[in-house]
Amino acid sequence: MAERAKLAVVTGASLGIGLELAKQCIEHGYDLIIASDTEEIQEAAAVLRGLGGTVEAVQADLATRIGIDQLYTTVARQGRPVDVLMANAGRGLGEAFVDQDFADIQRVIDTNVFGTTYLLHRFLRDMRNRNEGKVLITGSIAGAMPGAFQAVYNATKAYVDSFAYALRNELKDTDITVTCLMPGPTDTDFFETADMLDTKVGTDKKDDPAMVAKKGFDAMMRGEGHEVTGFANKMQAMMANIMPDDALAEMHRKMAQPGTAKH
């Protein structure tokens, strides 16, 4: 009897780090269910199938219970356990907090905090019942510092980073591993959708999403607790542990304040 192909679920997989994580899964022989709230998820599925993968795409609003339930139901219909869960869906938002539209603020919180939490609650119960599985949660080094001009985004990532470490500890006596991927600025559409193209961080050189995804995937496969990608980001994460919060907020301001872009 042939050994079954393992199944991976990747959220936020239409572009950027999520798409590259899905490519890593294909490269390592996983069947895929990918999800995003955009129509581009179908294009991503076509790309992944072109690499030889078996892929099912789900377009769902991953900031809502309905959307997460839609993804969960699609996975359940397969009648197969999820071997790898990559909770990658996220949303950014720049500019000063008081200048932001609150609907945009709520969207960031709902996607990064509520959506991530509910997704993990639904899928981790099944993994715990089987006592098997690997989880990769995309946090950020942004969660390690007060994010002046990205206040809500950084706060949500502080939640995600902390949540990932807590889950890892709760599950330490099981055969389930939880890894937190903590990238820095990465060359994706993040800064465009967050309206940050007129900032220093938006115009500075960024990490390759394929590199970030490979580092995260490899760390997950090794069962490590976290992976900070890139030397500069590792240094920044170290500084966040020793610098006062006021100094960190001022440092972030110089990167993220509108009008600081290099020309």
Rank of each mutant, 00 (worst) to 15 (best):
K157S: 05
G147F: 00
E95P: 07
R125E: 13
V160H: 03
N131E: 11
M243R: 09
C180P: 00
G79S: 10
M255N: 11
G230M: 00
Q150I: 15
L167S: 03
N131C: 06
L7T: 07
N131I: 05
V113H: 05
R222D: 12
D83N: 12
L119N: 04
L120H: 02
F163R: 00
A151Q: 09
N88D: 08
S36A: 10
V98E: 14
G16H: 03
A63K: 01
M1R: 09
Y153L: 08
I26H: 06
Y153R: 08
L51H: 14
M238S: 10
V201W: 06
P258L: 02
A237L: 13
E3Q: 14
T199E: 03
Q78G: 14
D126R: 12
E250Y: 05
I68A: 08
H121E: 15
M196H: 07
G92T: 07
R91T: 05
R122Y: 09
K134C: 05
T203C: 04
M238I: 13
V108N: 01
A144K: 12
G18F: 00
G259F: 07
A166L: 04
G50E: 09
D245I: 12
H226T: 14
G133V: 01
R65T: 11
D61M: 04
I34Q: 03
T203Y: 07
L167N: 04
A166H: 02
L21S: 03
A210Q: 15
Q106T: 13
A76S: 12
M221P: 05
I105Q: 14
K215N: 14
H226R: 15
D37L: 08
F231M: 14
T177M: 06
R122T: 11
L7G: 10
M239A: 08
D83K: 07
R130G: 04
K214R: 15
T73H: 09
K254G: 13
Q59A: 12
M182Q: 14
A247D: 08
A46Q: 08
M127I: 02
G225P: 07
A166K: 02
I242D: 06
I68F: 04
F102D: 11
A35D: 04
H263Q: 15
A57Y: 01
T179N: 11
R253F: 10
V113T: 13
T203R: 01
D189K: 15
G184L: 02
T138D: 06
